[in-house]
């Protein structure tokens, strides 16, 4: 079993935290993993991405080969499109928040962006911000998207919850609980589809 994931967004939106949670969960399941991420200059409001590879066999490359990514998981719809050359044409999923993060003057027409996402056969396009607000965790959008993706990650949601506990434990129970409810609310969306 092997699963290749690209997590993406804009610096500060939590894409790298989601990557850390999946990694932790995968490691606790004894899987091999490699995770390459963007640091440095791009983190200042630019596009950020993480290549996360999980397998029950040793993994060679830190980067996912083009055309082989199983899931693009994004907290922003246009950013999801940036990595389409990596997506597996037959079986790949795009799972993304539908609300744009507009910090550039030339952000394209939103309907056109969403239209491009919908062109991909396997997609979950939803208002993750609204769901995050519903569970009283307005900054938990990345957790909601991760929850929705968990259905296709082949990692038990309990393992992801354990990883959230372990990573956010230092910040107190309230933070842990808020993130776990966002995670579960996201999963509920995917389950209903």
């Amino acid at each position: 079993m092997k699963i290749d994931i690209i997590l993406c967004g804009v610096g500060g939106m939590g894409a790298l935290s989601s990557a850390a949670i999946i990694s932790k969960a995968a490691l606790s399941m004894g899987m091999y993993m490699k995770q390459a991420e963007t640091h440095g200059m791009s983190q200042r409001g630019g596009d950020v991405q993480s290549h996360l590879r999980l397998s029950d066999q040793p993994i060679a490359s830190d980067l996912i080969p083009e055309g082989e990514c199983d899931i693009i998981l994004s907290v922003e719809p246009m950013e999801a499109l940036r990595y389409l050359p990596f997506l597996n044409r037959e079986t790949g999923w795009i799972i993304t928040n539908q609300n744009p993060f507009v910090n550039i003057p030339n952000y394209p027409d939103l309907d056109a962006v969403l239209g491009e996402v919908k062109k991909i056969k396997n997609h979950i396009l939803f208002d993750a911000d609204a769901i995050a607000k519903e569970v009283n965790n307005p900054i938990g959008t990345n957790m909601v998207v991760l929850g929705a993706a968990s259905k296709y990650l082949r990692i038990d949601i309990e393992k992801l919850e354990d990883a959230v506990r372990s990573i956010f434990g230092k910040k107190g129970d309230a933070v842990v609980d808020a993130n776990i409810s966002a995670l579960r609310a996201g999963r509920a969306v995917a389950d209903k589809m």
């Binding site: 200059m41 200042r44 055309g67 246009m78 050359p85 990596f86 550039i104």
Partner: peptide
């Protein structure tokens, strides 16, 4: 023969880093 994914849609705008 290497696999290919989907092409990047033309509408995609670059998002360069910027001052906070």
């Amino acid at each position: 023969n290497v696999k290919e994914g989907f092409p990047v849609p033309e509408l995609l705008a670059p998002r360069p880093p910027k001052l906070c």
